[in-house]
């Protein structure tokens, strides 16, 4: 029988939409990044000057550091605690199910709603300080969102609270791929809990771990909503993140070229990190 040829028409709608609204804008961003442009008047080609400025910009450097601080703490926290939690609720009981449901709730809520709730809790005249007053602990009252140093801690707490359940679920899915017989074999060999974890669980969940790490890195590097709503990057520049910086350079300062240059660098960085982690973890998988 003559095999009917598959029509490219099937891929065409997706191709057109994807190209028009995603690929072309990305290419435009690359092009803008080589120009000095306020988005309105004539463009002026300046080569890689914007990119040189990216590496000289102190305020951006500060945003990069903030983003890295937030990312590193959140990534470590949600991955360690997420794995631990996943192991605790990795049973088929009703109890475990309830806990899973609860831990996952924050992740389905919009960051806007979450940020406002936390803002109302952490504000100076908010719920937390109100509670402290009620319990007669006025000495502990703090200006959580408004002081140098503590604002970024608030952001970190909210991010951990928001994404913990998600990473727990990722690890849970990974744990469920570990065959039960292996644990039994380990017990027979006289292995204790730690041995089981180190020699059975850990090697087998490396793929899940890669995914969890990757997702947390990508999410935290793109961090914007929570910061925008809770502190608006403040006080001062204390909680400005990379994406916050890009948006304010591009939209408020109308430095379209420059902000495009930053976002191109971010794009490349995320790409490089993703590739690096995937290959590194693949090696680990083999070693273990």
């Amino acid at each position: 029988m003559k095999k009917k040829r598959m029509s490219i028409g099937f891929a065409a709608p997706a191709f057109v939409i994807y190209t028009m609204l995603l690929v072309i804008p990305i290419m435009m961003a690359f092009y803008f990044s080589l120009n000095k442009w306020n988005g309105f008047n004539a463009m002026q080609f300046i080569g890689i000057e914007n990119y040189i400025n990216v590496f000289r910009d102190a305020r951006l450097g500060n945003a990069v550091i903030n983003t890295l601080i937030i990312s590193v703490v959140v990534i470590i926290f949600v991955n360690v605690l997420g794995l631990f939690l996943a192991m605790l609720v990795n049973t088929a009981s009703v109890k475990s199910n309830i806990f899973r449901t609860i831990f996952f709730i924050p992740f389905v809520l919009s960051t806007v709603a979450i940020s406002f709730v936390w803002k109302s809790i952490l504000s100076y005249n908010g719920v937390l300080n109100g509670m402290l007053t009620t319990f007669g602990q006025e000495g502990l009252i703090g200006n959580w969102l408004g002081s140098h140093g503590s604002a970024i801690v608030c952001i970190i707490i909210v991010e951990i609270w928001r994404t913990l359940g998600y990473h727990m679920m990722l690890y849970l899915a990974a744990l469920q791929t570990v065959p039960h017989e292996l644990y039994e074999a380990c017990t027979v060999d006289g292995g204790n809990r730690w041995n089981k974890f180190r020699h059975v669980t850990l090697p087998l969940i490396v793929p899940g771990m890669t995914v969890s790490f990757l997702m947390s890195i990508i999410n935290e590097l793109r961090m914007y909503d929570v910061v925008k709503i809770m502190t608006d990057g403040g006080p001062g520049y204390d909680t400005e993140t990379i994406v916050y910086n890009i948006v304010s350079q591009g939209f408020s300062n109308s430095m379209v070229g420059y902000s495009s240059a930053i976002s191109v660098v971010l794009f490349l960085a995320i790409g490089a990190i993703s590739v690096f982690i995937v290959t590194k973890m693949n090696q680990k998988e083999v070693e273990m």
Binding site: L21, M28, F32, V243, S263, V264, I270
Partner: peptide
Amino acid sequence: VYFLIGIMVPYVIVYMPLCIL
């Protein structure tokens, strides 16, 4: 592969170009 690239894109890169487009 072409379709896959989009997964890694930090979406902030496209807002300004989209406005202009």
